[in-house]
Simulated assay, not measured.
Amino acid sequence: MSRTIVPEAKHGLDTFKTEVAHELGVQFSDYNGNLSSRQCGSVGGEMVKRMVEEYEQHLK
């Protein structure tokens, strides 16, 4: 089950996901059942990579 821990962040995360998907050439929509696991995983992986990089920058 996927849930947003901070509900106020949902819109921002959705926007971030859409931006990353667009950059990777993955067409996200309201229904994503036609996407492969690899496509969805590449978007999620890139999102996590960028969030970790951002966090590391704030630690400096």
Rank of each mutant, 00 (worst) to 15 (best):
V6S: 12
I5H: 05
D14Y: 05
V52M: 09
T15G: 01
E54M: 05
E56Y: 00
F28Y: 12
E46G: 01
T4M: 14
G45K: 04
L24M: 10
P7N: 07
V20Y: 05
T18C: 03
S36R: 08
M51W: 05
L35F: 05
Q57A: 15
I5W: 10
G12N: 12
C40W: 00
E54G: 01
G33H: 06
K60M: 09
D14G: 01
G44R: 02
E54H: 04
V52T: 10
L59N: 09
Q57M: 05
E19Q: 13
K17V: 02
S2I: 09
E56A: 04
G33Q: 03
R3T: 10
M51D: 02
H11L: 14
H58S: 13
T4A: 13
D14A: 09
G41K: 04
V6G: 03
T18G: 03
E23D: 15
V6L: 14
H22G: 08
T18M: 10
G44N: 08
S42L: 12
K10N: 06
K10H: 09
V26S: 11
K17H: 05
Q57W: 00
K10E: 15
E19P: 00
L24V: 03
K49F: 06
C40I: 13
Q57C: 03
G33C: 06
L24F: 09
V48Y: 08
Y31N: 15
S36I: 08
G12I: 02
H11Y: 11
G12Q: 12
V20K: 05
T18L: 10
E54C: 00
R50D: 00
L13V: 07
L35W: 02
K60P: 02
V43C: 05
E46K: 08
